[in-house]
């Protein structure tokens, strides 16, 4: 518990300068908008956005819950699938040589392009949205896990062999151990991309969720609500990433910066 508190405090100290900067920016923003220098539909005042948040808190909460459900369901499915496939690929050379290059190539694809196809196949409900989140989580996590499993120290592996360890023991005690930072880095990236994929999918399905709310409030010119929905979506992402970063820091205090490839989206 003490360790967690210290980590939190360290974070707070680093955040102070940024908070001052942010506060100055918000004040300036409020100033230019409330004096009418910038029109409200171009940039609504922070107070307008806050007002919309208070007034539409019911709707915002409901749609945020929908987005969170989609993102977390896709995240869980994708992670479980990635772990299962990574184990298989590590142990079968044949499958690995055939499948892995394809998976690497898939990762460079613009996933959001296939959302409309998923909608054609699955309808406008939760299914296509969860599927797209699962696919992007799966590929990011799989690639990072493969790197992590391979990053195991060769000498430790040899030692385990000398000690007559079984394949399962080698996997669990050496490779999985080495892969942990890579896995957590992938989870951090996937958490934020899941919210993005969910939001974009909601633009297209137009059924529920924060993305849907952003779109209809834009169409109906409720600019305050539109900004409020975007702010809530961002807060949701930050919270998810924050939780995973905290797990990272508590589980592996020795790793200052987790390795692994990122994904911008």
């Amino acid at each position: 518990m003490k360790r967690i508190t210290r980590k939190l405090l360290e974070g707070v100290a680093g955040v102070r300068a940024a908070a001052a900067f942010l506060l100055a920016a918000l004040l300036l923003w409020q100033l230019v908008t409330s004096t009418g220098l910038v029109k409200f539909y171009v940039l609504p005042a922070p107070s307008t956005v806050l007002e919309a948040m208070a007034r539409f808190r019911g709707e915002l909460g409901e749609e945020a819950l929908a987005t969170l459900t989609v993102a977390l369901a896709g995240f869980a499915l994708g992670t479980v699938a990635a772990i299962a496939v990574a184990m298989t690929l590590t142990y079968s050379r044949l499958v690995r040589t055939a499948v892995y290059p394809l998976l690497l190539a898939l990762r460079a694809l613009p996933f959001i392009a296939i959302i409309p196809i998923l909608v054609v196949l699955m309808g406008t409900g939760y299914e296509p949205r969860i599927t797209i989140c699962a696919i992007s989580t799966f590929l990011t996590t799989l690639v990072n896990l493969m790197r992590g499993l391979r990053s195991a120290d060769g000498e430790v592996e040899e030692l385990m062999h000398t000690l007559n360890a079984t394949g399962m023991q080698r996997l669990l005690k050496v490779r999985v151990y080495a892969a942990r930072p890579y896995l957590l880095a992938a989870l951090r990236i996937s958490a934020s991309s899941c919210v993005i994929e969910a939001t974009v999918a909601e633009w297209i399905t137009g059924d529920s969720g924060l993305g849907y709310l952003v779109q209809i409030s834009g169409y109906t010119f409720q600019i305050g609500l539109m900004w409020a929905a975007i702010v809530v979506a961002s807060a949701l992402t930050l919270a998810l990433v924050g939780v995973i970063t905290l797990i990272e820091k508590v589980a592996m205090p020795w790793a200052p910066q987790a390795p692994g490839a990122g994904a911008a989206v």
Binding site: G14, V15, A17, A18, A20, F21, L22, I112, S192, V195, I196, T199, V200, L210, G211, V214, Q215, G218, M226, W227, I230, A233, S234, T237, L238, V241, V265
Partner: peptide, 21 residues
Amino acid sequence: AGAYPLVLAMQAVPLVAIAPI
């Protein structure tokens, strides 16, 4: 000191979500 933490935070914000704006 002032701007970099904001940039790091921005990285976590779903930037694609600002497309409508």
